[in-house]
Design a binder for these strands. Structure first.
Lengths: 341, 341
DNA sequence: CATTTTATTGAAAGCGATTTCTAAAAAACG
DNA sequence: CGTTTTTTAGAAATCGCTTTCAATAAAATG
């Protein structure tokens, strides 16, 4: 394996000079630099990143920690897959490597310190974490490593986050349903205490309130963001609701898929008997028998910005804000019917 | 940061002794070892993997190279997602880290050397490569790094591979259709020269031959394993076939989804008007309006074995065979109809 | 009990880079 | 042209660990 020593010898300079030349440092004569560079390219020299890492104490690796209810399920959500893809692509572009760690939610808090201690990476990007905002931010601070939470917009100060405006997601979806004449609107959401879930719920409440529609808690179901809970959520909703809803907003598309199944199972046609709107805009929704109307989230943009933000933090480059919030938008397809008179 | 030096000092021994004790090497007195271990745990010592890596020239990182027609599309295939998940999980279990590189097929050959040269990882696992067997195996050998190809069963000797028996996939699907009375069977496959695609096609041919059914090349369409090509494949098939097929075998489920859409679009009901069988058994197929009959591949098992094989290669542990081939099995659901009289 | 063998320890040399810091050479100055 | 200042080059230290090898201590042997 060719080392900087070989380069130095061939160029007829000292190792330190070779290093300075290679790294474009000030204080080396252009002629000397040229010699070194030529020697390096002639020998096909690639600096050993481990040796470099030892002295600079950096790896140029960034850990993505993908967590969910069970490690099996996590990758089931196309939103996560897409954000992993875009983070990876951006990281690679900038000369970083992406480490992937898939953990289940209940081991998440044990794994984060382990991953940090293993020092295999310079920073952490958390994807799909379901820990409560406060707990999570405490842990992250204790870790003393640059870290960032993605997709969910964590409220605690001094935790970096890149997310969609989740409240706006809920607001847009609900407002659209209301505009289409619905006022009896079911909501299938997720765990409370996790900001993303709460925000989407609050958006729903806000739209209701603006329209002067009373809250009906029998219409609010807590799922877990996975497909099955969309299915069971609909069953609960139908049996529990004081008035049968004419529309359902599921806080993500995966649950909307489950909801569609359940509705079909119950003999309810979408959108004739009941309207349905999701959130996220995962791929292929347009291919469904009933194309799903949804709220589109700029997931790719989130992934890209997350990668750039964490790199910025590491390199001290141009600063992005610590909280980045992107706007969602309504994507009208065929699963919502107007019932205005 | 606490180093081995601190541990040695606290234990009152030399650094080398500390190292030997910590690494459970032969030749250190049990009492001494105990002292060192206690000091280490007291100081909460975690060895710096970079320093370790420098001397052992290893990183305990393994690169997964996920490639496909365009980097956007790759992660679209649940089979890839699942194999990435299981590889990652197994690697993590064994104390390795998984590096993810997502590349497009046409940059694949440039990226592999770059990734190897960057020395960020100790080995390569190739996922979704579409390079021709020969080219690929040549490149891999030149890289001089342990590497393994997953899912597709590459034929060239001395390239490690873990895959499903792709010929059997094609054979089982086609044989089943034949048993159900079909003899006019369309095939939507993929690129020739890539072993996986060819194998599935050959299985199809084999079943046909055994049943004494003549080959009809107008029934064989080349797709690209993505959903869209299932859609266009059906259109081609219907316009091209000398006799309209009564059943279609798409070489993977993703194309089956596209095919379903196209058939619906053409006003053909599945399975009443035409039967459809896929391959892979990706998640949620049972939730489709017409539950897709398919060939189930043990993707999780493939991922796990791939990780174990590459670790075995690195550590020289118990040896798995260089080519691991797993058996698929038929999963009957509702998209194939019997037309026997 | 002297001598050989074996077990245990520690000093020192790497691994391959970066980074200080000193020395030499070149340039600028009076 | 001698002196001061600025450039440039190189020797050596360092990052945190493993590993070799020599030295010492303990045990075994005749």
């Amino acid at each position: 394996m060719v080392t900087i020593k070989d380069v130095a010898k061939l160029a007829g300079v000292a190792i330190s000079t070779a290093s300075n030349a290679l790294n474009n440092k000030y204080g080396v004569n252009p002629k000397t630099r040229k010699k070194v560079l030529e020697a390096a390219s002639q020998l096909n020299f690639v600096p050993n990143p481990i040796a470099k890492g030892l002295v600079t104490s950096s790896t140029r690796n960034i850990s993505m920690i993908l967590s969910g209810p069970s490690s099996f399920n996590v990758f089931t959500n196309p939103v996560f897959v897409e954000v992993v893809r875009t983070i990876t692509a951006t990281l690679n572009e900038k000369g970083y490597h992406a480490l992937l760690n898939i953990v289940s939610s209940n081991e998440e808090f044990d794994m984060i310190p382990k991953i940090v201690q293993s020092r295999a990476s310079d920073a952490l990007i958390l994807i799909g974490s379901r820990q409560e905002d406060e707990e999570l931010s405490k842990l992250l601070k204790r870790m003393n490593t640059p870290s960032l939470v993605v997709i969910r917009g964590i409220t605690s100060a001094d935790v970096f986050a890149v997310s969609v405006d989740n409240r706006q997601c809920g607001y847009l979806a609900t407002k659209y349903l209301i505009e289409m004449g619905h006022y009896n609107i079911g909501f299938i959401g997720s765990l409370p205490k996790v900001s993303m879930a709460e925000d989407r719920l609050n958006g729903y409440f806000q739209a209701l309130k603006e329209a002067g529609i009373d809250r009906d808690n029998s219409l609010v179901i807590h799922g877990d963001y996975y497909q099955e809970s969309g299915f069971t959520g609909v069953k609960q909703l139908l049996s529990r609701a004081s008035h049968r809803p004419t529309a359902i907003f599921t806080a993500n598309d995966l649950m909307a898929l489950g909801a569609m199944e359940a509705l079909q199972y119950e003999g309810l046609r979408v959108p004739e008997d009941i309207s349905l709107i999701g959130c996220d805009n995962i791929p292929n929704l347009h291919l469904l028998r009933i194309p799903l109307t949804t709220i589109a989230n700029p997931v790719a943009e989130i992934g890209k910005l997350a990668a750039l933000k964490i790199i910025g933090e590491l390199e001290g480059g141009d600063e992005l804000p610590d909280k980045i919030v992107l706007q969602p938008e309504l994507r009208v397809r065929g699963s919502v019917r107007s019932i205005r008179r």
